[in-house]
Amino acid sequence: MTIIRTIRKPIRTAFAALAIAAVPAAAIAVPALAEGTKTASSAATACPTGWGSLPEANSRYGTAPLVDVRTGRHTCFDRLVFDIAGKAPGYSARYVTNVYQDGSGQLVPLRGGAKLELVLRAPAYNDAGRSTYTPANRRELTNVTGYTTFRQVAYAGSFEGQTTVGLGVRARLPFRVFTLAGPGTHSRVVVDVAHSW
């Protein structure tokens, strides 16, 4: 009986020491967050849910032209933004085997394991036929080096009131498309592609 009590006491002491030692480690593992920011666990739940890889479309046509194309990196997805000089047009976004130029039908080569064809139902020229969006390099609209999902953004032209852009991505990953008003009288068509399923 005395031997069992003697063994139990050092074991309890060892467990207590381990529990105390674990507290600072847990505190170090979770960085301090500024007031008003999300906690690590709530930030993780903000990542995409319910997105898919099937085509998305809005059939509304617009006359306001495309004026810029931008990209950005976020925690859980890469973002492509089309700036429109007026009301947001409709769009079509779908995974395809290849993307082709509007009008000529020439292949638009894209890097990546999958290709998204993005069609804006808006021109990249004004009523006088002058270009409102003239990329410096049609094969590299923005520099996506170092992006998690994006591999290349290429211009496929603007023809008969619609503009096509090819987006090369790492793999066939879930995406979403939506429109935003502003700034001012402008609007945006936004394409987000998730980093993973």
Rank of each mutant, 00 (worst) to 15 (best):
G182C: 06
A136F: 06
Y133E: 09
Q152V: 02
R70Y: 08
A194W: 10
T145L: 01
V189Y: 03
H195F: 06
F178I: 01
A17F: 11
V23E: 04
V119E: 07
W197G: 06
T185D: 15
L80S: 06
T185G: 11
T2F: 11
P55Q: 05
A40H: 07
L141H: 12
S92L: 12
V96I: 04
V108Q: 09
V119F: 01
A64L: 02
L116E: 00
P10K: 05
T164P: 00
F15A: 12
E56R: 03
T71A: 12
A128T: 13
K87G: 11
Q101P: 00
T134K: 09
A46F: 10
T145V: 03
T39S: 15
R12C: 11
R151E: 07
R170S: 13
T149C: 03
S53P: 00
G161N: 07
P109S: 11
A114V: 05
N143W: 10
L180V: 12
A34L: 14
Y100R: 03
K9I: 15
Y61T: 13
A19V: 10
T179Q: 04
L180N: 12
D192F: 05
A194C: 04
V193M: 04
N137L: 01
R139N: 14
G168W: 08
A19N: 02
Y91I: 00
H74G: 09
R12M: 13
S196F: 10
A136K: 06
M1E: 14
N137T: 08
V81S: 09
T37C: 03
T179E: 04
S59E: 08
E160V: 02
T2N: 11
N137D: 15
R170F: 05
V189R: 00
R121M: 01
H195C: 02
G184V: 05
L80W: 07
T63P: 00
P10Y: 14
R139D: 15
L173C: 03
S42D: 15
A16T: 11
T145A: 11
I84T: 08
K38M: 13
N143V: 07
V193E: 07
R8I: 14
A88W: 06
G168C: 04
S196E: 12
R121N: 11
G161D: 06
A32Q: 13
L141V: 08
I28D: 11
A85E: 09
I7T: 13
V189N: 03
W51G: 05
Y133K: 05
I3C: 00
N137V: 05
V153Q: 04
R70E: 15
A136M: 08
G112D: 13
L18F: 13
V67C: 01
V99C: 02
G161W: 02
I4S: 13
H186V: 01
D68N: 15
L120W: 00
T37N: 14
A171K: 03
V165I: 15
L141T: 09
L180Y: 05
A171V: 01
N98S: 10
D102M: 10
R5W: 12
P89N: 14
E56V: 10
G157Q: 07
V144C: 05
V191G: 03
V177A: 06
Q162D: 09
V69I: 15
R60Q: 12
G161H: 03
K115C: 00
